[in-house]
Simulated scan of single mutants.
Amino acid sequence: MRIAYLHAGSIPSVYANGIHVMRMCDAFADAGHDITLYALPGTQPADDPHAYYGVRHRFPIRGVPAPDYTPAGYWARAARVRALLLRDTAPDLLYGRDPYSLALASDIAPFVYETHQLWGDTYPTRVERRLLARPTLARVVVITHALARDFRQAHDRSARLPLLVEPDCADVPDHQPASPAPDLPGRPGVPRIGYVGHLYPGRGIDLILDLADRLPGLDFHLVGGTHEDRVRWEEPCRLPNVYFHGHRPPGVVPAYFPLFDVVLAPYQEKVYAAGGLGETSRWASPMKLFEYLAHGRAVVASDLPVLREVLQDRVNCLLCPPADRAAWVAALTELCADGALRRALGDEGRRQVVERYTWRERAERVLAALDRPATV
């Protein structure tokens, strides 16, 4: 099948949406489809976007700029995307997270709209409603059951929407390009506690620093974050057992996971996206969480209702109330002292990813679901 993936973000970039989009395009290609990605031009220096993201397949990437980042600018860009689609070989299916381009190109082919949040009372919501009324709409893909419920309630035609819930995923390590292991600083023989992800508000960075202060016998490594966010957290930090590694290309991040004894997912009750835009804790399906599990790491995560769609306390992780710092101290202390428990949690998490949460399987499910009734 010829698939055109329409993305309203930049490729390459430092943002998680770019990782998700590239992983899905890679999975479509791995399943034998002819995939072309239409995205905004990159905002992160990278000579080779495919190597930057560590994907296995080299599919075409079309950079389509917007004259400005206003509704008028996005519509103008959507017109450019539509013209490219007509100039290139016509796709059999449109797929993407760009409501403007999907709406304008919906007469070219059937389309699947994927969304990871509700827009609220904003202009994109009006675009989304226009999109959902298109007769060529084949599927709406959301990442959690919580989002599916809220999405149905938010849209007038919700009872008839063909919704499919597909969580985020991970590639199992055996299927990833080999990257050299980084040389981590720290004390020999001291347990390494890892966090991988952005440093936005609500990601629990203050909790991690408090844990480092309370547990001086452990070394804490934070991988990720924009330069500005890293400076904001690192400059005032005086703890000798905390190491900020900054942003790393997604293609080399998997080399960090095996170096950590325990990994943290300390999401708070309110979690914000880039620039503080969009509070997403109610609907989140964090990619890094699945990557933790795929690498067989022992995870300590926040006990949030949406994360319980995937996580089970003392089955594939330890869950702690986000604000109960004593519980986090106890969980880390227990895992660092109990190697058998670390291995059991890690093995079960990896097994679940292999059986249910790989990008290839996700790609096959979102396409297979096009010819059968959706279930939520």
Rank of each mutant, 00 (worst) to 15 (best):
D324S: 13
D324L: 14
R325C: 12
R325Q: 15
A326Y: 04
V329Q: 07
A330Q: 12
A330W: 04
A331C: 11
A331Q: 07
A331F: 07
L332G: 04
L332N: 05
L335K: 00
C336L: 09
C336H: 04
A337R: 13
A337M: 02
A337Q: 09
A337F: 07
G339D: 03
A340L: 03
A340R: 06
L341Y: 01
R342P: 01
R342M: 08
R342C: 07
R343S: 03
A344R: 13
A344S: 13
A344K: 06
A344F: 01
A344L: 05
L345I: 04
D347P: 01
D347K: 07
E348L: 10
E348P: 00
G349N: 06
R350I: 02
R350Y: 06
R350E: 03
R351D: 03
R351K: 10
R351G: 07
R351T: 13
Q352T: 13
V353H: 03
V354Y: 11
V354M: 10
E355V: 13
E355N: 14
Y357C: 09
Y357H: 10
Y357L: 08
T358Y: 09
W359I: 10
W359H: 08
W359Y: 12
W359F: 11
R360F: 10
E361R: 15
R362T: 09
A363D: 09
